[in-house]
């Protein structure tokens, strides 16, 4: 007995070794490194001192926490919008479309992801810019008498973010909605349920794991997005990841950048935790 269990343990260890190694080398160790860097302060060339200054900086300098708050609020908004737009699409794909229509619609959602994010974002820029297609069409239709600038504002960022995130919302939603027995909807209808009541009491509770995982993924992706907000947002769009990038790359301030990185990790986890608490969901339920 003893020997068998030792043998099994070894097998398990060997099987998991690549995963453990991967976690250790690429996730845990860099984060430990990052943490130690974030907890020091430069006092003279190549002389550092242990300090919480970099963390304090975030709370003391309104610029930084405002940037974070703005990024978080915009990300939440983008997540909610993606959900509101993605849900009917997913419902249509999962429950109403049949056969070829179903697969082609699904494919259509994936199409934007065959090109890189950069190209996708440039696509939007071509559409939205002052000398761009939409502006041209509006003028041609006589709906605008001069060029219309639709780029470089929060709405443009929102459009870009929702577009980029759509697939990550639709995939989990379609798969949970697919698993919803049509009979349940019909039964509820048969028992007197109205469309709205069925949506609220049958469809949404069933789709909840998909909604939660879709929202978490979209929220994290949006929060961590860099290209879309900087390119589409233009001059007023300070995004928190841009802040981190700036600290690391253009300011050589690794200490501050690491601290921001950790704060982003902690604060976004806190936001997700709060979101789960508010909607009375548990993370474990989404993984089944």
């Amino acid at each position: 007995m003893e020997r068998v269990s030792a043998g099994t343990k070894l097998t398990v260890l060997v099987l998991f070794a690549p995963f453990i190694l991967w976690m250790l080398l690429l996730v845990i160790l860099p984060h430990i490194d990052l943490l130690t860097i974030s907890l020091r302060e430069r006092v003279a060339p190549r002389v550092y001192e242990f300090s919480f200054k970099n963390y304090m900086e975030f709370f003391v300098e309104p610029l930084y926490w405002r940037t974070f708050a703005r990024t978080a609020i915009m990300s939440i908004l983008a997540t909610v919008l993606t959900l509101i737009i993605g849900f009917p699409i997913s419902y249509y794909i999962a429950k109403i479309a049949r056969g070829r229509l179903k697969s082609s619609l699904f494919l259509l959602c994936m199409l934007p992801f065959w090109v890189s994010e950069l190209v996708r974002t440039f696509g939007w820029m071509i559409l939205l810019r002052e000398s761009g297609i939409i502006s041209g069409v509006l003028q041609w239709l006589g709906l605008a008498d001069g060029p219309v600038e639709m780029l470089y504002n929060d709405a443009a960022i929102m459009v870009g973010l929702v577009y980029t995130s759509m697939l990550f919302m639709v995939v989990p939603l379609v798969s949970t909605l697919d698993s919803l027995d049509d009979g349940l909807i019909e039964a509820a209808y048969d028992l007197g349920g109205s469309t709205i009541a069925i949506l609220r009491e049958i469809v949404i509770p069933h789709a909840m794991p998909g909604i939660v995982s879709g929202c978490i993924v979209v929220f994290m992706l949006t929060l961590g997005n860099y290209l879309t907000p900087t390119l589409l947002g233009g001059k007023d769009s300070l995004w928190f990841t841009e802040q981190i990038y700036n600290q690391f790359i253009t300011r050589f301030n690794w200490e501050q950048g690491s601290a921001f990185g950790f704060l982003l990790l902690l604060l976004s986890s806190a936001i997700i935790w709060t979101g789960l608490r508010l909607t009375r969901q548990r993370l474990q339920d989404t993984i089944k």
Binding site: G183, A187, G192, S194, I202, H206
Partner: peptide, 21 residues
Amino acid sequence: VPPNRRPVNMVFQHLALFPMM
């Protein structure tokens, strides 16, 4: 007349009980 307005109820082939309740 839609199903939710008919004085008829149906027991489904696969029962269709609501698992969330």
